[in-house]
C-alpha cells in the first residue's frame, strides 16, 4: 500500500492504495467519480480519458502512484460550474454527438485536449484532423458523424 495525493477537479485528495492500482480504478473506486469509464483492457477504447496536468491521458495506462502530486481533471470537473456545461459538452448536446453515453466522457476529454493542442500549435482543426485525432476513442453508436460535427462546433465555441 502506498499513500497517493493529487488534486482532482480542484480538490486535494489522498488515499492509501495497493501499488498496482490503476489511475482509472482509483478515480472510479476510491474517489467514486464514475463518469470515467472502462471499455476495454488493452488501452484502445478511450472511455477512460482524463486530463493529467493538462494533457489527455488514458487513465487505464497509468498507475495511481504515478499520478502522485498531479493535477487531474475528470469529466465531472470540466464545466466551470455546476449549473453550466463546458462549451464542448454543449456542442455534443446540440449536435447529438452521443447516444448511449458510455464513450462520451472520454470523447469530451479527448476533444477539449485536441482543441487546446491545435490552438497552442496554431494549427487548424479540420474534419480530417478531428477524425485522425479520434484514433484512440471508439464509439459504437453514432458512426462518429455527429461526434466529428460536435468537436468542430465545440472548437469554435471554445475559441469564441
Amino acid at each position: 500500500m502506498t499513500k497517493v495525493s493529487m488534486t482532482v477537479n480542484g480538490k486535494a485528495r489522498s488515499a492509501e492504495v495497493p501499488d498496482n492500482t490503476l489511475l482509472v480504478d482509483y478515480i472510479r473506486e476510491n474517489l467514486r467519480l464514475t463518469g470515467t469509464h472502462v471499455g476495454c483492457d488493452t488501452s484502445q477504447c478511450g472511455a477512460c480519458v482524463v486530463h493529467v496536468d493538462g494533457q489527455a491521458v488514458k487513465a487505464c495506462t497509468m498507475l495511481a502512484v504515478s499520478a502522485q502530486g498531479s493535477d487531474i481533471t475528470t469529466i465531472e470537473g470540466v464545466a466551470a460550474s455546476k449549473n453550466e456545461l463546458h462549451p464542448m459538452q454543449l456542442a455534443f448536446k446540440e449536435n447529438h454527438g452521443l447516444q448511449c453515453g458510455f464513450c462520451t466522457p472520454g470523447m469530451i476529454m479527448t476533444a477539449t485536449d485536441m482543441v487546446e493542442r491545435y490552438k497552442a500549435a496554431g494549427k487548424e482543426l479540420d474534419e480530417q484532423s478531428i477524425r485522425e485525432e479520434l484514433e484512440g476513442n471508439i464509439c459504437r453508436c453514432t458512426g462518429y458523424h455527429n461526434i466529428v460535427k460536435s468537436i468542430a462546433d465545440g472548437a469554435s465555441k471554445m475559441n469564441a
Partner: peptide, 21 residues
C-alpha cells in the same frame, strides 16, 4: 428536440451497472 437524457451523460452522472456499489 435536443435530448432530455444528455445532461447526465455529458457530465459523468450517468448511472451504469458498474457504477453501483
Amino acid at each position: 428536440v435536443l435530448r432530455k437524457e444528455d445532461k447526465r451523460f455529458l457530465t459523468g452522472k450517468g448511472r451504469y451497472t458498474d457504477d453501483i456499489v
